[in-house]
Write a protein that binds this DNA or RNA. Structure first.
Length: 221
DNA sequence: ACCCAGGGTCATA
DNA sequence: TATGACCATGGG
């Protein structure tokens, strides 16, 4: 069985599920908040925490930055790790305000913007790239655990690549597409959708749209 | 009673 | 550089 290219994987997922309309947020700042809160956390719990912030009229950088840590942690409780995330959220809000919020940051070139994000305590590769792609519309492909799992099962990667190696590999393989930002946006969303939908519990991809290509090498996480 | 979820940091070897 | 511990809630 021939291996599919990443582009073929994208096309099959898109044919199956259609556009996903990501990121689920009303503003770039809300994307940033969601990206921080969803770290190793189910999205439904993130929605509750964001709902708490909104209800407290605290879904804004200055409000979060100046909120008492106790109260901020209370709002974040449903999304887990609330003490850790309260600090991380304040760090990223301080960064956001220091650099002129969206209007200031949107003028930056992508590489220095990415470096600056990664310098914020609590922002790692995936969170930075979520923010770059979905808040600032930059052509950066997001690698998450689902991406590794799916590409691993399709035998498209060795499995021990670093984050940056894997990102470079997938970005290069999609270079010919016309609108890379739109493709990266949709692809990552489709991978998450697909992982939740069918590939989560069943490694052999029974009803999987990618079944024809599935390597079935057993329980490769 | 487990396991997992749209990760990241820190201490240790 | 490479593991392991830790953070913590809610759903299956």
């Amino acid at each position: 069985m021939a291996k599919p290219s990443p582009g073929v994987v994208f096309d099959k997922l898109f044919d199956c599920y259609g556009p996903q309309h990501w990121w689920p947020a009303d503003s770039p700042f809300e994307v940033i908040v969601g990206a921080m809160l969803t770290q190793n956390t189910a999205w439904v719990n993130v929605e509750r925490a964001i709902g708490n912030l909104r209800q407290a009229n605290a879904l804004a950088a200055d409000a979060i930055l100046h909120a008492p840590p106790r109260r901020l942690a209370q709002w974040l409780k449903p999304s887990g790790y609330f003490n850790v995330k309260a600090k991380r959220l304040q760090h990223v809000c301080a960064w956001y305000l220091q650099h002129g919020e969206y209007a200031g940051l949107v003028q930056w070139e992508t590489p220095p913007l990415r470096e600056s994000l990664l310098s914020v305590h609590g922002v790692g590769f995936e969170t930075a790239d979520d923010i770059l792609l979905y808040a600032f519309s930059r052509p950066v492909f997001v690698i998450d655990a689902y991406t590794r799992r799916i590409f691993n099962r399709l035998d498209l990667i060795a499995g021990d690549e670093s984050y940056e190696e894997l990102r470079g590999h997938i970005e290069r393989s999609l270079r010919r597409r016309v609108d890379t930002v739109a493709i990266y946006n949709e692809f990552h969303a489709l991978i998450v959708r697909h992982a939740k939908e069918v590939c989560k519990v069943k490694p052999d991809c029974d009803k999987c749209v990618l079944r024809r290509y599935c390597a079935r090498k057993g329980l490769s996480k």
